[in-house]
Simulated assay, not measured.
Amino acid sequence: MDILLVGCGKMGGAMLRRWLDAMPARFAAVNRSGRALPPGTEHATGADALNGRRFDAIVIAVKPQQIPDALPAYTGLLAEDGCYVSIAAGFSAASIGKIVGDKPVVRIMPNLPALIGRSVNGLYANAACGEAHRELANQLARATGTAVWLDSEDELDRLTAVAGSGPGYVFEITRSYVAAAEAMGFSPETARALVLETMGGAVEMATRSQDDVTDLRNSVMSKKGTTEAGINALRRDGLLDTLLEDTIRAAYDRAVELR
């Protein structure tokens, strides 16, 4: 199987590394990011350099705003029974169809932990896709983490707002948590270690447990203890819930704008 990756930035490169290890396929990549390609990847400078070769799948990994300009050059390189696979946030299958015609299109919405095989991948296939196209997309997704099939692109945009953009929220919350630990007098190195180990342990415990996270939170608190005092401050005026709802809503609204 021959697969062409159009664009090889941070996300495309992260997924490509996992695919090379997990899939019996030949990969070529059009790379203008300046990043070195993983060993075993054929490098192409553009569509002309591929000399009309046909690919079983063309993976669209450029920024959504670049797709209308970048994709037309590659429409003649898809094999007759091939499919397009897009990992671009927000840009709909219908919008891709306006460029490539009535072709099978699968959208995969990954997140950055694809780099370590822990991506949460949402998948949506248009009506032109057959079982073989869905299976290929499933293999691509599972090589980088989990695969969650969705029934609509609106649902995929909602997943983008929660999981696709989610690592950014987590890193920003972590940054603020580390800064608060430093304000308590810890060195930056110690503050970072304390916060990351605490967060990592708590998330792993929640993942392994069947208990609701509210019950897990309550299990840490004792009446009038230190944790209760901290939680009361964190939940003051419902600000945390409102802030996170607004965060996810803003990301979703932007995904809708990009359709």
Rank of each mutant, 00 (worst) to 15 (best):
L77M: 09
A44N: 09
L16S: 01
Q66M: 07
T144N: 00
G225D: 05
L37S: 08
L234W: 04
L159Q: 04
L234E: 08
A128Q: 09
I116H: 05
A93D: 08
Y177N: 11
S209D: 08
T207E: 11
R208I: 05
I96C: 03
E182A: 08
A28S: 12
A28M: 09
G52Q: 02
A29F: 04
G46C: 06
S119N: 14
L20F: 09
A193M: 14
Y84V: 05
V148N: 01
V105L: 08
N232T: 07
R18Y: 05
T144H: 00
G185M: 09
E197G: 07
S92R: 01
M184L: 14
D151H: 04
E189L: 15
C83S: 15
A181H: 10
A114F: 06
D2R: 15
T146P: 06
G117F: 13
E42I: 14
A57S: 12
V220E: 04
A132I: 07
L136S: 05
L159M: 15
G164Q: 08
P39M: 07
N126Y: 03
V30Q: 11
M23A: 12
S187V: 14
T160Q: 01
E42C: 02
W149Y: 06
T146F: 02
L78Y: 12
D241C: 02
P24A: 13
T207N: 09
A191E: 10
L78I: 14
I231V: 11
V6Y: 07
R53H: 12
L4P: 13
S86D: 10
V105R: 07
A179M: 13
V59A: 07
Y169D: 11
G7A: 10
A47K: 01
N138K: 12
Q66A: 09
M11I: 08
K10V: 10
M11T: 12
A127R: 09
L136R: 00
L150P: 11
R254S: 04
E189S: 13
Q65L: 12
R235Q: 05
I108D: 00
T247F: 11
I87A: 03
C129F: 01
R107T: 10
R26L: 03
L244V: 15
M184D: 15
I67P: 07
V106K: 03
G164N: 13
M199G: 11
R236Y: 00
A163L: 06
D215T: 15
D237E: 01
R249P: 00
E182Q: 13
C8N: 11
A193Y: 14
A22M: 12
A57R: 05
Y74K: 10
D246V: 00
T160N: 04
P113T: 13
C8H: 09
P72Y: 12
Y169Q: 07
V62H: 13
V100R: 08
T226Q: 02
C129G: 06
E172K: 04
I248H: 02
M11A: 08
A179T: 14
V195T: 07
R107H: 07
N218G: 05
G200E: 06
A70G: 06
V105H: 05
